[in-house]
Design a protein around this nucleic acid. Structure first.
Length: 571
RNA sequence: CGGGGCGUAGCGCAGCAUGGCAGCGCACCUGCCUUGGGCGCAGGGGGUCGGCGGUUCAAAUCCGCCCGCCCCGACCA
């Protein structure tokens, strides 16, 4: 493959639109170009990376017994209406009409279509277990696409669906996929963590996310140093506090707090700690107001609250809605006298006297005791885990990290098979709903995640397995013996099954080195006059200072062996 | 959708408060030179100043509307 015959538009400068390093480097290395917000063209080198990731995913899926198929990207509305998601999926589902005025959407996921397929084709318990997957472009009309292909609207995803006769065998299918996912991420050469995740309204503890660890990740992960507990903060339970809750020590008293509407301001004004304040957040759960209380130094966990209320949609109330439902302005909401369900974080019972809002401008209440004053409030685990919380499993110490979600496995149960009537006949001839599982991998996102994890001041550092090419052959001149030797090395590499890029451009050596480093090519063979005089070429690793002079005759075999050991897959 | 910002050559930006030749660096083209980490010199091409409308003798600059993008919040592979 010659540099001059492909399209690798590298850039010295960083486009201002790119915020995170992976996005900057993918643009600079000539991997992607933006067509519209969250919609990208993959250029030849970027596509090679994507294909290598895809190949590993496909290979491990096949090995795990899943079978590939390909479903449509455009789907009719009636299926979505049948599952109920035409109404519930929200604005993320891009909808349109065809020429006959029929409703369609661009597929953000494929549960409906796969379930429709299976309800027609699976009749008997003998047809299962079955696992079907595809690698396909999805479209989600994200509110805010960002970070290049990390959160794009159009993206490449592998999604697999398992079909079983009961929960028990479904759990086995789940474990098989879980193991396959570990194999995928191990082969990709990424540092990752598997965490317990929220499974939403579906329920059950069988949901795990595969997180690539990176500072720029959008998810918070809590993990224990003493046991193997690791969870998305969205999901991480906070253990109930031990010991005796304190008795009330004061009566509820109204105090003036002019202008103090944040926890910090109230704390400073009343000379109390934020932990002595309970903030009351008003949410709309499917349109109905609910109040959630957590300590002033804590954050409401909206996933926990949503699960608690059983609502399909939970949003923070607008200032206007707060005035309307509580009678007081934003910043002064409190639990007393509210005509709505009140949920109180369990921890609040351990405060003898709390400061809360009075639902009245510039006014707070002191001396509140949750159990005494709010017997009707539901006490539960409502907040995010925080530094200092004990591990909910073993009591050990929890630490926090950021991660990029690249995979998610969960059990669907019979949610879709019930909705769409996908049943089979068991050995007794009874019709039963098929038990499903669903397993996603963000293929295009993995490319960005790998770059977040592998880069330096010169550019990308790819694991051998997914680099756009394994080796760059860099002739220091494009004529004479240097050039002829480089050409021969390049051809021999391909014959040996190694994908090589020959930089045949008539440019200064520095430019070739820089471009090669920028796109993350793991290995370099540098052909120069001085080395050739001794019958040698220079061998360099992208990641590490090692430089070796190799005899010409050994160079190809040396690279081939290294590439094989590194698990590179060739195209 | 709410809050903040930006739109001038392929990329990065200046010019805009106070209207008067559309500029700089990189990239690109030509020639010379150079050739082991984005070299040097000389010459050159490239712009509906996001769009539409208005004010004015005159608009990148002032006014209005629209469009697009980026950043902060709710969604997710």
């Amino acid at each position: 493959m010659r540099f001059s015959q492909t399209l690798i538009p590298t850039m010295k400068e960083t486009p201002s639109e790119a915020e995170v390093i992976s996005h900057q480097l993918m643009l600079r290395a000539g991997f992607i170009r933006k067509l519209a917000a969250g919609i990208y063209t993959w250029l030849p080198m970027g596509l090679r990376v994507l294909r290598k990731v895809e190949r590993i995913v496909r290979n491990e899926m096949d090995r795990a017994g899943a079978r590939e198929l390909l479903m449509p990207g455009v789907q009719p509305a009636d299926l979505w209406q049948e599952s109920g998601r035409w109404e519930h999926y929200g604005r993320e589902l891009l909808r349109f009409k065809d020429r006959h005025d029929h409703d369609f959407c661009l597929a953000p996921t494929h549960e409906e279509v796969i379930t429709d397929l299976v309800r027609h084709e699976i009749r008997s318990y003998r047809d299962m277990p079955l696992n079907l997957y595809q690698i396909q472009t999805k479209f989600r009309d994200e509110i805010r696409p960002r970070f290049g292909v990390m959160r794009a609207r159009e993206f490449l995803m592998k999604d697999a669906y398992s079909f079983d006769v009961d929960e028990e065998t479904s759990a086995t299918s789940y474990r098989t996929m879980y193991a396959a996912y570990k194999a995928v991420f191990d082969r990709l050469g990424l540092r990752y963590s598997v965490v317990e995740a929220d499974s939403g309204a579906i329920g059950g503890s069988f949901s795990h996310e595969f997180m690539v660890l990176a500072e720029t990740g959008e998810d918070d992960i809590a993990s224990c140093g003493s046991c193997d507990f690791a969870a998305n903060v969205e999901k991480a339970p906070v253990a109930p506090r031990q010991g005796q809750a304190p008795a009330p020590v004061a009566q509820v008293t109204e105090v003036a707090t002019p202008g103090a509407h944040t926890v910090e301001q109230v704390a400073a004004f009343l000379k109390v700690a934020p932990a002595d304040i309970a903030k009351t957040m008003i949410y709309l759960a499917d349109g109905q107001p609910v109040a959630a209380m957590v300590r002033g130094d804590r954050e409401v966990n909206e996933v926990k609250l949503k699960n608690m209320t059983g609502a399909a949609e939970l949003v923070l109330a607008s200032p206007a809605a707060i005035v309307e439902t509580t009678g007081g302005p934003v910043g002064f909401s409190g639990p007393l006298g509210l005509n709505m369900p009140v949920y109180a974080d369990q921890e609040l019972a351990f405060s003898a006297a709390l400061v809360v809002g009075a639902n009245k401008k510039d006014t707070h209440l002191t001396g509140l005791h949750i159990t005494r004053d709010l017997p009707q409030a539901r006490q539960a685990d409502l907040r995010n885990a925080a530094l200092g919380d004990p591990c909910p499993r073993c009591g050990g110490e929890i630490s926090f990290a950021r991660g990029i979600e690249v995979g998610h496995v969960f059990r669907l149960g019979t949610k879709y098979s019930d909705a769409l009537g996908a049943t089979y006949l068991d050995a007794e001839g009874q019709a039963k709903p098929i038990v499903m599982g669903c397993y996603g991998i963000g293929v295009s996102r993995i490319v960005a995640a790998a770059i977040e994890q592998g880069h330096d001041e010169n550019g990308i550092i790819f694991p051998l397995a997914i680099a756009p090419v394994t080796v760059a052959v860099l002739p220091m001149a494009v004529d004479g013996e240097v050039w002829e030797t480089a050409k021969r090395l390049h051809d021999e590499l391909w014959e040996a099954g190694v994908d090589a890029l020959l930089d045949d451009r008539d440019l200064r050596p520095g430019v070739k080195f820089k471009d090669s480093d920028l796109m993350g090519t793991p290995l370099k063979l540098v052909v120069g006059k001085k080395g050739l005089a001794e019958g040698k070429v220079e061998f360099k690793l992208r990641n590490g200072g090692q430089v070796e002079m190799l005899p010409l005759a050994e160079a190809v075999e040396h690279v081939r062996r290294l590439a094989r050991e590194g698990g590179a897959q060739f195209i």
